[in-house]
């Protein structure tokens, strides 16, 4: 039992990073980015490449991966998504447009990675040692990835709640119209949030690659998990996303080890349906009029 809980918690660290990335993109930039999982997979591949070709430790590799993903996602927002925000007459139209556009990016990026790496599974051995918690062993790489995720998430929290820029991001998340009234550049803040979200997701991918076998076409599954975490936690809610990631990590691990590893998605969906039926505004979400 403790084994399941600890494994679940270790897994949830990376889930939380990915979901935080998505919740920034959807909650602040108002873009439902269905290509989020492809950023994650790209993070996996870059970490793999840095480690195997240059023997760069994936944790150190984050210093390269995060800025690169930031720049890449900034460019995507400015080139592809900002025009959609400008032409949208209402929220609903932007929603449909951004869903279709990011589907396009999803397949385009996935197709390019399939061409580059093929459909095989990749993995590499990084810190593949036993680490003992409460008397049972876990992969050291999982523990390190979890610790790194905690540090990054804490950094994000400090940024959002202790800096001017972070306050602007939260203001836009709460209400873009009012934010522009207090001289916040909404369009630039949205781009910043989108890019930051991409960087977080790519970090999540790099950390995931240290203990998980990955391939070029698995992005969609992770996008889905991230989406479900974001909705469970309440859109744009950082604490909610972390808590929902924990719940999902533990639920998946429990189902995988107690019932069948093939049913992890079913477990995710079970949680999702419960949330949709009973708390569609998210765990901490407030009912809005």
């Amino acid at each position: 039992m403790t084994h399941i809980v600890v494994t679940g918690i270790l897994l949830s660290g990376t889930y939380a990073l990915i979901a935080l990335g998505l919740t920034l993109q959807y909650g602040v930039a108002r873009i439902m980015n269905l290509a989020n999982g492809e950023t994650l997979v790209a993070g996996c591949f870059v970490a793999f490449w840095l480690y195997t070709a240059f023997a760069i430790n994936p944790i150190a590799g984050l210093l390269v991966i995060a800025p690169a993903a930031f720049a890449f996602n900034w460019a995507i927002y400015v080139v592809a998504l900002r025009p959609l925000v400008r032409r949208a007459r209402n929220r609903g139209q932007l929603e449909v447009d951004s869903i279709l556009a990011t589907f396009g990016l999803l397949f385009l990026l996935q197709g390019l990675m399939l061409l580059g790496f093929g459909g095989e599974y990749f993995s590499y051995a990084f810190l593949a040692e036993r680490f003992v918690i409460f008397g049972s062993g876990y992969g050291l790489n999982r523990v390190v990835a979890f610790a790194a995720a905690v540090v990054i998430a804490a950094g994000l929290y400090l940024f959002l709640y202790r800096t001017r820029q972070g306050t602007a991001v939260r203001a836009v998340a709460a209400d873009p119209n009012s934010a522009s009234l207090v001289a916040i550049d909404v369009s630039r803040t949205a781009a910043l949030a989108f890019a930051l979200g991409g960087a977080l997701t790519a970090c999540g991918g790099a950390l995931l690659s240290t203990f998980y076998t990955f391939n070029a076409s698995m992005g969609v599954i992770f996008t889905m998990k991230a989406l479900i975490i974001v909705i469970m936690g309440g859109v744009g809610d950082v604490r909610g996303a972390v808590l929902a990631a924990l719940a999902l990590g533990i639920a998946e691990t429990a189902v995988a080890s107690l019932i069948d590893p093939g049913l992890t998605l079913a477990a995710t969906y079970g949680l999702f349906i419960l949330v949709l039926l009973f708390r569609p505004q998210g765990i901490f979400g407030r009912q809005t009029a």
Partner: peptide, 9 residues
């Protein structure tokens, strides 16, 4: 997949 991506875009 690339063709599908381009079609969506």
């Amino acid at each position: 997949p690339i063709v599908m991506g381009l079609a969506f875009l």
